[in-house]
Simulated scan of single mutants.
Amino acid sequence: MSMFYAGRHRGPSHPSQVGKRAGATMVAVAAVSLGTATIGAQSATAAPSATSAATFSGLVKQGSRGTVVKQIQQKVGVSADGIFGSRTAYAVKRWQRSHGLTADGVVGPRTGTKMGLGSTTTRSSRTTASSTARTNFTGLVRQGSRGTVVKQVQRVVGVSADGIFGSGTAAAVKRWQRSHGLTADGVVGPRTGSAMGITGSTRSTTTTTSRSTTRTAVSSSGIINTAASLVGTPYVMGGTSPSTGFDCSGFTQYVFARNGKTLPRTAEQQRQATTRVSSPRVGDLVFFGAPAWHMGIYAGNGQMYDAGNSRVDTTKRAIWTSAVTYGRV
């Protein structure tokens, strides 16, 4: 007797054959499902490895040098000279603030990873100090010193290498000493000099140079010529050189140092270090306020050279108020 199946007449199947067919179908479905899950699992595990980024594990900060510093400088938009100076630190802080990071100006693991720096690219930066410590320095270099050894020191601490050990260099030396576990006195003696990798001995020449500097008369024409040559240098808070930018007292300190005279660092310190005059002449210092909150170099005819503020770079402009005093070095 025939049975009716889905509109067709079909002979009855043996129960064992029905079971075999059903079992085969279930096995096939399970195999397809298992294969799909396996492929999906493989895809899920493969995707992250294709897009994972290297984790930065270095530490790059003011005073560091090398190719990693150049990468950082390119990322934060400053000149990529490979020297991590104050301008680079300032730009790093801006970048950190804009990316929700602690704005300390130091490129550590978190900032470096965010910047996309590689995990193995900081070895030279992290070992810069130790790799240069290969000398037995026996000299003594400090504020007031000049010469090629001072230039070596300035290159290590990341300031303009003009060969004049002023207060800006002393401050940078102190920072370097603190970061390397040394006494932060701003003086490069045997221990600091050896750690920096400085070559040569300057104990005798340093004293002679300092004394001769004290006796050097300041040339007003030299002061004005130097000041004029720096017009256009960017204003940077704390800046003390053309390579990093100037603030007002950093500008005057640099100009006078280039003409053989060492001045203190701040505007008020410079006001106190000068002789007040009522009839200014070209090359005298102009002070705003007492204590001084701003200053410049008198250029004659009611004008001055100064590093203004974040909106006014180093320039020559009119003295806008009569409430000023003048000091002569």
Rank of each mutant, 00 (worst) to 15 (best):
Y298F: 11
I39W: 12
V29N: 05
G85L: 01
M237A: 14
T113W: 00
R191Q: 15
L101C: 08
S119V: 03
T102G: 12
Q71W: 01
T206R: 00
D162W: 01
S221E: 00
I83M: 08
V92K: 10
S212G: 00
T148M: 08
T127P: 03
Q270L: 05
W95I: 04
Y326S: 03
I297C: 06
V255N: 08
F137N: 02
P264S: 01
K151I: 06
G283I: 00
S249C: 10
Y5K: 14
T199F: 04
G112A: 06
S243P: 08
K316V: 13
I224C: 00
Q62C: 09
G11V: 11
S160D: 11
L182F: 11
K114W: 02
R281Y: 02
K151D: 09
Q177P: 07
V149E: 05
G66H: 09
R134F: 02
V218M: 02
R258I: 00
G245I: 04
P242A: 07
Q71M: 08
T205C: 01
R94F: 01
V173P: 04
V329W: 06
D185F: 12
R276D: 01
W95D: 07
V150T: 05
I297K: 07
G7I: 11
S13N: 05
L230H: 04
G260R: 07
G100C: 06
R215T: 14
S279R: 11
A217P: 02
